[in-house]
Amino acid sequence: MAKNLSGDLQVASANRLVDGMVVWLDEAGQWTDRLQHAAVARDPRGAEILLERARAEAFTVVDPFLVAVIEDEEGTIEPLSLREKIRASGLTFEAIAADAVRYA
């Protein structure tokens, strides 16, 4: 069962400056390209702190912001909005070239 009906669960995301890739802030304050490694804030105060940390680490990324997520029993994180789902998992159709990668 998905949790976060009140939208309290947040992760911090941005695009990496050097290559534009989507990244999330992990517990260690590093930017990771794995959503499942993202640090999750569990209440509004935690979210504020997370965003502050993200901004403090913003030298290598562009414009960090918070993303509302849900977390299932196994701890798998998924974004609430379609836009963030697409940012996390890539194109929703087959791109024309075989080497256009759909990333997990």
Binding site: L17, V18, D19, G20, A95, I96, A97, A98, D99, A100, V101
Partner: peptide, 21 residues
């Protein structure tokens, strides 16, 4: 880029996966 491009409504070509560097 990733081996394809998109021709636009202003006669340009867009590549979608360029690295800034």
């Amino acid at each position: 880029d990733r081996g394809y491009g998109h021709f636009t409504t202003r006669q340009n070509l867009q590549l979608n996966w360029i690295r800034l560097e």
